[in-house]
């Protein structure tokens, strides 16, 4: 088994819906055992791309192979080894947690004993043992997603495709969710995950930034951050909005973004910082100090896309 083996590959993958090209000539190569993130604003083509990888949607052009199998030519062989979790909750709300898991296990012909073991482990990992007899429709949003994951994993797939799995999931459940994903990675499972949460994108081994159906960048989060032109400065302030307005449009300022504890300012070069601090003091805008910080994926996104449609 080669660690660099490509398990999911796309070349020139294209999907059109009438005049709209949802995925436009996508080239992608995901290695075995990595967590690969598809990141981008709504409408970037993440869902459409995942659907084509999962063999539920036929591409208009290009080639896709998953686990070495051509998806278009042999969709059924692909379906046996992958697991796909659609963005919209795809389970039966009028079935209980156990019944849902059992249904998917049976579809993949998982032996009963193995099913019991895996269900117990997956439900324990997502703190859902108590809800096994509850109807799926009566679960909270986060628990529904965790149940979806449990169903997706019950047949022990080697490749898992997750479409925005943590949307609407509380922070605690999200952490559990990622624990499970890291556990899978340790077992050599390949994970392809789309997300609109940029903090989550940082958890991926590699990322593809999608925009308008095209892939803009593809690299590790650290390498992507290093690609950011100029420098990023973080200003601490009790009046972030005022500070933002004061900085916007000044020479050397490429972008200003409000963040939790202040304002991130994208500069064309690091040397601009001292000058800006002086200008702020002169204009009387309250500022408790500024320093250069490494950019986050979110900063990168804003720098690259101008913040169109990204979620904070």
């Amino acid at each position: 088994m080669n660690a660099n083996e490509i398990t999911v590959a796309a070349t020139g993958l294209t999907k059109r819906f009438g005049p709209l090209t949802a995925v436009d000539g996508l080239d992608l190569a995901v290695r075995r055992g990595e967590i690969f993130g598809l990141v981008g604003p709504d409408g970037a083509g993440k869902t459409t791309a995942l659907r084509m990888f999962a063999a539920v949607m036929a591409p208009d052009a290009g080639r896709v192979s998953v686990g070495g199998v051509d998806v278009v030519a042999e969709p059924e062989r692909v379906r046996e080894r992958i697991s796909y979790m659609p963005q919209r909750f795809g389970l039966y709300e009028d079935l209980t947690v156990d019944e849902n898991i059992r249904f998917y296990a049976e579809l993949f012909a998982v032996p009963r004993r193995l099913r019991e073991q895996r269900a117990a482990r997956l439900l324990a990992a997502s703190s859902m043992e108590r809800f096994r007899k509850r109807l799926a429709g009566q679960l909270s949003g986060g628990m529904k997603q965790k149940l979806g994951l449990a169903c997706a994993l019950v047949h022990a797939p080697s490749i898992v495709l997750l479409d925005e799995p943590t949307t609407g999931v509380d922070p605690l459940s999200r952490r559990e969710f990622w624990q499970i994903l890291y556990g899978l990675r340790a077992e050599g499972v390949t994970l392809l995950i789309s997300t609109a949460y940029l903090d989550e994108a940082e958890r991926c081994d590699r990322l593809a930034l999608l925009h308008g159906g095209r892939m803009l960048y593809c690299d590790t989060p650290a390498a992507l951050r290093a690609r950011m032109p100029g420098a990023l400065a973080e200003f601490a302030t009790p009046a972030p909005r005022q500070l933002r307005d004061a900085l916007q449009g000044r020479a050397g300022v490429l972008g200003v973004l409000l963040v939790g504890n202040g304002v991130h300012v994208h500069l064309d070069q690091a040397g601009r910082l001292a000058e800006l601090e002086r200008q702020l003091r002169d204009s009387g805008v309250p500022c408790d100090g500024a320093r250069l910080v490494p950019p986050s994926i979110e900063d990168l996104f804003v720098a690259l896309l101008g913040g169109a449609g990204t979620q904070p």
Partner: peptide, 14 residues
């Protein structure tokens, strides 16, 4: 209608 078809389609069910 309930969105369960997308998942069902991704399984090996014929």
């Amino acid at each position: 209608e309930r969105g369960t078809m997308e998942l069902l389609v991704s399984t090996p069910v014929t």
